[in-house]
């Protein structure tokens, strides 16, 4: 996390360390002065108190010096802020859609992803929209965040200067699963980025692709279900197709085969039979949200995940 992965991150850190050092010096001085007074001017050592009670010189001094210090701080913050807000004109535009509780990204050529992948050393400008409540797009390694407010288009730009994968978090409280509303940003070398750009289009086709879009879009399934075998909130969908699963139905355990009928029922009416081990995390029922065609596509996608363990 200590990486300064965006071009302006070091400027933010300079402002931080300036204020930190000034504060530490002042706090140490103030504390030592208090301890000194307790010792030197204790009742025992100084039975007769002094009588002075004011000094125009001192009042001026401790008005002027702090004023200068805070103006330097303001200026450092202002300077860094300008770098953080002035996106170069040739920035690549990526649209960011936030909703409870996931992020979706839309690239200029129409590709949609749930992870952000960007090229190294290229300015990127995110245009951000919320579909429900206020979220906040936060990359700690970049030292930047911007709220994503419904009804507004907010932006955040960066030029990633370090390769690697960094956390993207939601920083504005948005309900039950706020702390799970995270994804990653992967910074790739130009050639790798181009390969990724091609790869993601070729990877998946037809109905399964539609299903994938619903999975990341309308259905927002990826907020709770992974496709790579990892456990998020709900069970992973990798290898689910035609597998045998234990579910709890009417308080009793039952073994089912995850075929088309089961998956359809599990989407439309999930609380009827809950996969063992997930009883405490109820899933929303999708009746009325997804139609017959959507579910068909999702089934194709799940099939694809089962056939294609990637």
């Amino acid at each position: 996390m200590r990486s300064q992965a965006a071009s302006y991150a070091s400027q933010v850190d300079v402002a931080f360390w300036f204020i930190f050092i000034v504060s530490t010096i002042l706090l140490t001085g103030i504390t030592l002065f208090m301890i000194f007074c307790l010792y030197r001017y204790s009742k025992k050592r100084n039975p007769t108190p002094a009588t002075f009670d004011g000094s125009i010189f001192l009042e001026t001094l401790w008005t002027v010096i702090p004023t200068i210090l805070v103006m330097i701080m303001f200026y450092l913050g202002y300077e860094g802020f300008l770098s953080m807000r002035q996106a170069p004109a040739d920035s690549m535009i990526i649209k960011v859609y936030a909703r409870m509780w996931n992020w979706r990204f839309e690239y200029p050529d129409g590709r949609k992803t749930d992870k952000l992948v960007v090229p190294l050393n290229k300015p990127v400008k995110l245009l951000m929209y919320s579909e429900d409540v206020i979220h906040s797009f936060y990359i700690p390694a970049f030292r930047n965040k911007e709220d994503v407010v419904p009804g507004r288009e907010n932006f955040l730009w960066f030029k990633a200067i370090e390769e690697g994968t960094f956390d993207v978090l939601c920083a504005e409280y948005c309900g039950d699963l706020h702390s799970y509303m995270s994804t990653t940003i992967e910074v790739l070398k130009q050639e790798e980025y181009e390969a990724w750009e091609k790869g993601i289009v070729l990877e998946i086709k037809g109905e399964a692709l539609k299903g994938k879009e619903i999975f990341h879009g309308k259905g927002a399934c990826m907020a709770c279900h992974s496709v790579d075998g990892s456990k998020i909130l709900g069970p992973t969908l990798k290898g689910l197709w035609n597998s045998k699963t234990i579910v709890i139905q009417d308080g009793k355990e039952r073994e089912v085969v995850a075929n088309e009928d089961y998956i359809k029922e599990a989407i439309l009416n999930p609380s009827k039979a809950i996969t063992k081990g997930y009883e405490n995390i109820p899933m929303n029922a999708y009746k009325g949200i997804l139609d017959e065609k959507d579910i068909k596509a999702l089934v194709e996608y799940i099939k694809y995940l089962g056939d294609n363990p990637k």
Binding site: L27, M73, F74, M84, K145
Partner: peptide, 27 residues
């Protein structure tokens, strides 16, 4: 009070500073 309030005040300056606030806001 003076000791702790000073820490409160100094950390407040990090929050008042624009660039650092964008990082630490809502954390």
């Amino acid at each position: 009070f003076i000791f702790q309030f000073c820490i409160g005040g100094f950390t407040g300056m990090i929050l008042g500073t624009l660039s650092t606030d964008l990082h630490v806001h809502d954390t």
